[in-house]
Every structure is written in structure tokens, then in C-alpha cells.
């Protein structure tokens, strides 16, 4: 847990450093008063300070970790995320219906569904059915 927090805080410190650097490139102050960089610069400084405070607390062992289960199960998470990323990449190329017709049975299979009839019904309803409802009835444009 300690390592995970330290890694997360290191990333956040980099994010705050980026925002601070970019804010300085914008003006902090102009003729009318505070410039576009004013608020983000001081926020970045505050964020950096808080990040350092937390790092010191963790190093001194005074930080109260609010532990959720930090045990990772990378396989199902990676498979679901991978499917989502591929489907998103295909969304405009093959259209919503075909992308979802591929994604939904993939997700159900990854999650352990082996009832082929239910899987087929859900996939068709979730792709063609949802497309019909949103694009046809609700006039929400989908690719």
C-alpha cells in the first residue's frame, strides 16, 4: 500500500509541476488584474505542497491508509479494458451496431457467461436494439 501511494503521489507531483510550468507560460497578471495563469499556478503550488506533506506523512508512518482491497486481479480488468479500447477504436470505422455486436458477447464471455442463447439475445438487443432506441426513437446520433 505504501509503495502504491508513493507512486501515485509521484505521478501527481509531476502533474502539478506540469500545470505550474504551463501556468507560468501564461501570464499570472495583466493590465486588468489576475491573468489566465494565476489560478492554476497557485493551485499547482498548493497541490505540490499537499503531495509533499503526504509523502512525508507516509515516510514517517503517520498516514492513515484507508485500505480498500489493494489486491489486483489484472486478468479480468485487462481483458475488459482491452475489449473497450478495441471497440472504441472500431466505433466509427465499423459503426456502433457492429462494434457493440462484437464487444457485448466478448465481455459476457470474459465474465464467464456460457448460456449461448442469452448471450445472443443480449448482444443483439444491446447493439441493434439500443441503436434503434437512441438513433431512431430518441434522435441521439450514433455512428
Amino acid at each position: 500500500m505504501k509503495r502504491a501511494w508513493q507512486a501515485a503521489l509521484a505521478v501527481l507531483l509531476l502533474v502539478f509541476a506540469f500545470f505550474a510550468f504551463e501556468s507560468l507560460r501564461l501570464s499570472l497578471r495583466d493590465a486588468l488584474g489576475p491573468g489566465p495563469g494565476f489560478f492554476p499556478f497557485w493551485l499547482s503550488v498548493a497541490g505540490g505542497f499537499l503531495g509533499l506533506v503526504l509523502l512525508v506523512q507516509i515516510a514517517r508512518g503517520t498516514f492513515a491508509f484507508e485500505t480498500r482491497n489493494l489486491k489486483f486481479e489484472p486478468r479480468p480488468v485487462a481483458l475488459v479494458l482491452g475489449g473497450l479500447i478495441v471497440a472504441t477504436a472500431l466505433l466509427e470505422a465499423v459503426g456502433f451496431r457492429l462494434a457493440m455486436l462484437a464487444l457485448l458477447p466478448y465481455l459476457l464471455l470474459v465474465l464467464g457467461v456460457r448460456n449461448w442463447f442469452a448471450l445472443a439475445i443480449f448482444s443483439v438487443a444491446g447493439s441493434f436494439g439500443v441503436y434503434h432506441v437512441f438513433s431512431g426513437l430518441l434522435k441521439v446520433p450514433l455512428p
Binding site: 466509427e92 456502433f96 457493440m100 464487444l103 465474465l111 457467461v113 444491446g126 441521439v140 450514433l142
Partner: peptide, 28 residues
């Protein structure tokens, strides 16, 4: 079964993010 709930939620998330402005960027 939770599997259908998960798949359905992700489907609605994609629809929701895309339909906001009609761009893949928001899905990303």
C-alpha cells in the same frame, strides 16, 4: 446475473460519452 449488468453499464457509458458531442474523443 452481474455479468449482464456490467456489460449493459459499459454499453450505456459508451453511448453516453459518444452522444454528448458525437466524438470518439469523449469516449477516450
Amino acid at each position: 446475473p452481474y455479468q449482464y449488468l456490467c456489460a449493459g453499464t459499459l454499453l450505456f457509458c459508451i453511448v453516453g460519452a459518444y452522444s454528448l458531442k458525437g466524438t470518439l474523443f469523449d469516449v477516450g
